[in-house]
Design a protein around this nucleic acid. Structure first.
Length: 885
RNA sequence: GCCCCUGUGGCGGAAUCGGUAGACGCGACGGAUUCAAAAUCCGUUUCUCGCAAGGGAGUGCCUGUUCGAGUCAGGCCAGGGGCACCA
């Protein structure tokens, strides 16, 4: 048969149709089967998919296909994280409805994902902007409200002046909005919160159980939660100096051991004591106002100087009532951490020291570092916050820092002020409650009605969903279109029936993505969560997504899953399941060189598509020019593929040129999956060559090998055994590497096997013995199985070429024959004094003494020994012999 | 400032446990096939000394543990990431 090139684009469409016709991608309803839930973080429907996006879906798909072949009931769904700002921006720019823009994008992207041949159970697809999804989310909100896990309060919020909306702490990156990039301001607003702080301890402690999560992500979450163990100390105030109603001041500290080094106390500008003291002190009031203004921009904080104002109030030291310390207002003390007040030990804290030096407050060292002498040790302009021995500290003198902590804390607890202990141990967290109100149209409405008499009244479940209005949506003016809608917010109070007003805030879109993986287990259920289905499918066995969600989405999901479980919407059957994602894999990005021309008017550069650029020369002389005009273009370097830098490769173009299997193979090749992979034309060529090569090999094998269904010959000659060993070793290795998500190594194994299979095929012809022909068929069939998870279309094509009329997608993963994985002989390196001198090939069952004798007889070994007596011989079978002389 | 990760040929990278460093791919060089080209196939390719046989060095740098270190420990250097007034 004449070898033709494999026409990937045409054949891929054919096989995709065949899979659809046989419904191979649907999860089975039988809950007695072992299950495997494979999930990639669902995409935001931004427009079109590029090669960069396709990488994590490809990884998930390889894993899902492999697990299905291994006999698991696989759930591999796909949906759309469809609410959010870009739809509103598009609406503004193009005068289209955010919903129609979103749905158009979804339609286009769905076709692209299908063209990649991903084995997705499309019957379970949904978008978070579907009423059938967000209606259930509103019910979950009500459930959380009933459990006091959702509440409303007035607080300072991060305000994005460009997007005109509130941001959660997690959404502020370097003081700027995570989406708009605009510097965030502070604003006082009443809004809805989820009580994530209730789960601080659990979310932190359970990180230890997530063995299949990257260490890095667990660490980032632990830091984010930021638990600290300390002591809350109440200081008595000198009543002659304190405002009325303020007889004490509570401070939080993690270092009670340094109490004898205290120099002053400081409170935040918003602290009640500061406000009370400012009443009769205009200068102090002016200072407090200044502090508040400074806080408006996070960027200012970084450069802000430490500033303070002495209130004139005196506090009595808990260990010595005669010892009075001044109470200051300081701009570096935060109201919303601990008690909003601190005691300062300048010798042990850099900020306190800077402050003390500036305002000439006392600095007394209390901890002596190791190797220093108490007589000579001094603090100049660097505080010492390490461990050491206590000095100048009364009853703590001579103790270690750790012991001093305990003793000081115990002593404080035994002292009393107004009949209560002076101090209690306290745990504090960096983690704040999650503010979920967003002043946007394109989000899930918060199901609340505000009534003048009844307050905030939940919308009764029977009245759900609260649907977004489709008409009278005005995006021309900044702010929330729901707020400006002529009728939508006018509604009767469910409680007293009087005219009332709907809540016009919508939920943060991270709420949508906090439970979509639960919904996938029963996407058509008439309640938010089908407990039975959730109990069967959850947790997600393999979750794949970008490291950028290490905190935001993953922490929210871990919280929300617990919260809805505790509110009665969790998995059924007493399954004590707290973590939604058993294994997490964070994949790297696809990068591509980016080019630009500086904008003559200043500001953002003018990015240019790589296809319009011609690159000349190499090394230092490498230059880029516009292909058409020859105009010079700047090379920006390797950047993550992104629309804004125009360095994307559109998936449709790619598939039309090369086919989906080439795209899949390319994004898996070379780079380890957790690292970035660089898109290059030569890299793609390499992948395309391999696709054709596999096809030629199978095509050739189909002609030369034994016919399909041939019985295994009685005797297998040595040549055939060599091929069989290579085949089965590759089979075992490919499976192991896919299981471990080491796709680049699985790919390398297959390249290697193609080389071996290729040379065996080249030597074979119609006169080859039957046993070799049989081994060639086995090699061809097993290779087809091996490439199939990565290149499923080519797999089907080869399977058909090998004479089958079944679908490879329905075939089980073949088991490697154990006997073929071990060799009869082993090759061992022989070292003399740790230096490799020769190697030794010997039977696998050779004893240690046999190996030793054989090694010592080797010519290079004798030569290297040069007559020196052998002191010792280390023999590690299958690995090494080391002769020590 | 604090916390974390990563450093291997010209390049991407491989190397269960401490046991032959450089698998596999890309690029480069040489060859076969061809009227020629494309495509394909075969070979060489860590550096260095040597015609060769063979020798020496080598996983960012320096110490150490070990019969043996890319892998373990300590100290540096470089790059990347996270947090950042958190008391």
């Amino acid at each position: 048969m004449a070898t033709e090139r494999y026409n990937a684009p045409a054949r891929e469409a054919h096989w995709q149709q065949a899979w659809r016709d046989s419904n191979v991608d649907a999860a089975k309803a039988d809950t007695s089967l072992p299950k495997c839930y494979v999930l990639e973080m669902f995409p935001y429907p931004s427009g079109r998919i590029h090669v960069g996006h396709s990488r994590n879906y490809t990884m998930g798909d390889v894993f899902a296909r492999y697990k299905r072949a291994k006999g698991f009931n696989v759930l591999h769904p796909m949906g759309w994280d469809a609410f959010g700002m870009p739809a509103e921006n598009a609406a503004m720019e193009r005068k289209v409805h955010p919903g129609s823009w979103t749905h158009d994008n979804i339609a286009a992207m769905r076709e692209q994902l299908k063209a990649m041949g991903f084995s997705i159970d499309w019957d379970r697809e949904f978008a978070t902007c579907d009423v059938t999804y967000y209606a259930h989310q509103q019910q979950l909100f009500l459930d959380l409200l009933a459990e006091d896990l959702a509440y409303r309060k007035s607080s300072k919020v991060n305000w994005d002046p460009v997007d005109q909306t509130v941001l959660a702490n997690e959404q502020v990156i370097d003081g700027c909005g995570w989406r708009s990039g605009a510097p965030v301001e502070t604003k006082e607003l009443t809004q809805w919160f989820f009580r994530i702080s209730k789960y601080s301890d659990e979310l932190l402690d359970a990180l230890d159980t997530l063995g299949k999560w990257p260490e890095k992500v667990r660490l980032m979450q632990a830091n984010w939660i930021g638990r600290s163990q300390g002591v809350a100390i109440r200081w008595a105030l000198n009543s002659d100096t304190a405002p009325t109603d303020h007889s004490e001041l509570e401070v939080y500290t993690t270092r009670p051991d340094t109490l004898f080094g205290a120099s002053f106390l400081a409170v935040a500008a918003d602290h009640p004591l500061a406000i009370a003291a400012a009443k009769n002190n205009p200068d102090l009031k002016a200072f407090c106002d200044e502090c508040r203004r400074m806080g408006t921009s996070v960027a200012d904080i970084e450069t802000a100087e430490k500033k303070g104002f002495d209130t004139g109030i005196k506090a009595r030291h808990p260990f010595d009532p005669e010892w009075e310390l001044p109470v200051w207002v300081a701009n570096f003390v935060l109201m919303d951490y601990g008690t909003g007040a601190i005691f300062a030990c300048p010798a042990g804290d850099q900020r306190d020291l800077d402050f003390a030096r500036k305002y000439d407050l006392p600095v007394k060292p209390v901890i002596l570092p190791k190797g220093e002498s108490a007589d000579t040790f001094e603090i100049s302009d660097e505080a010492f916050d390490g461990d050491g021995t206590m000095i100048n500290s009364g009853f703590l003198d001579g103790l270690t820092t750790t012991d001093a902590f305990q003793l000081a804390a115990d002593k404080l607890a035994s002292l009393h002020l107004d009949g209560k202990p002076v101090a209690i141990r306290q745990t504090n967290y960096r983690l704040r409650d999650w503010g979920i109100s967003r002043q946007r149209y394109w989000g899930c409405p918060i199901p609340i009605i505000h009534c003048e008499d009844c307050g905030s009244v939940p919308v009764p479940s029977a009245d759900l969903p609260v649907k977004l209005p489709d008409d009278h949506i005005d995006f021309e003016t900044p702010g929330n279109p729901l707020d400006r809608h002529p009728t939508w917010k006018d509604v009767a109070c469910p409680s007293c029936q009087k005219p009332a007003r709907r809540e016009t805030d919508t939920m943060d879109t991270f709420v949508d993505s906090s439970w979509y993986y639960v919904r996938f287990t029963a996407p058509h259920a008439d309640k938010p969560v089908d407990g039975e289905q959730a109990a069967y499918w959850l947790p997600v066995d393999q979750y794949i997504g970008g490291i950028e969600h290490a905190i935001l989405h993953l922490l929210y999901s871990r919280f929300f899953f617990r919260a809805i479980s505790d509110a009665g919407q969790g998995p059924a059957g007493g399954k004590n399941l707290r973590e939604p994602f058993a294994a997490l894999f964070t994949q790297g990005m696809v990068t591509h060189e980016a080019y630009f021309q500086p904008n003559p008017a200043g500001g953002k550069p003018n990015w240019i598509e790589p296809t319009k650029v011609r690159v000349e020369g190499d090394g230092k002389d490498r230059k880029a020019v516009l292909a058409e005009t020859g105009e010079a273009v700047e090379i920006a370097g390797i950047e993550k593929m992104s629309k804004s830098k125009k360095n994307v490769i559109d998936l449709d173009d790619f598939i039309n040129n090369y086919g989906a299997d080439t795209a899949r193979w390319f994004v898996l090749s070379d780079s380890p999956p957790e690292r970035d992979v660089l898109y290059t034309d030569v890299g793609v060529e390499g992948a395309r060559r391999y696709v054709q090569r596999v096809w030629r090999l199978i095509d050739d094998a189909a002609d030369k090998a034994a016919p399909q269904g041939s019985a295994k010959p009685e005797k297998i000659g040595s040549e055939a055994v060599i091929l069989r060993k290579a085949t089965h070793k590759a089979l075992e290795a490919v499976g192991r590497h896919i299981e471990g998500l080491r796709f680049n190594v699985a790919v390398a194994t297959l390249y290697d096997f193609a080389n071996q299979f290729g040379s065996a095929l080249q030597k074979a012809d119609e006169n080859s013995p039957d046993d070799l022909k049989w081994a060639l068929r086995e090699a061809g069939e097993l290779m087809t199985h091996m490439i199939a998870p990565m290149m499923p279309h080519l797999g089907e094509e080869c399977w058909a070429r090998l004479g089958y009329n079944t679908l490879l997608a329905n075939q089980p993963w073949p088991a490697a024959e154990k006997a073929l994985l071990v060799d009869d002989e082993m090759t061992i390196a022989v070292q003399v004094n740790g230096k490799r001198r020769d190697e030794l090939t010997i039977g696998v069952d050779a004893s240690k003494s046999d190996i030793e004798a054989a090694a010592l007889a080797l010519e290079p070994v004798i030569k290297a020994l040069d007559g020196k007596p052998v002191k010792k011989v280390i023999v590690v079978p299958k690995r090494i012999v080391n002769v020590v002389a």
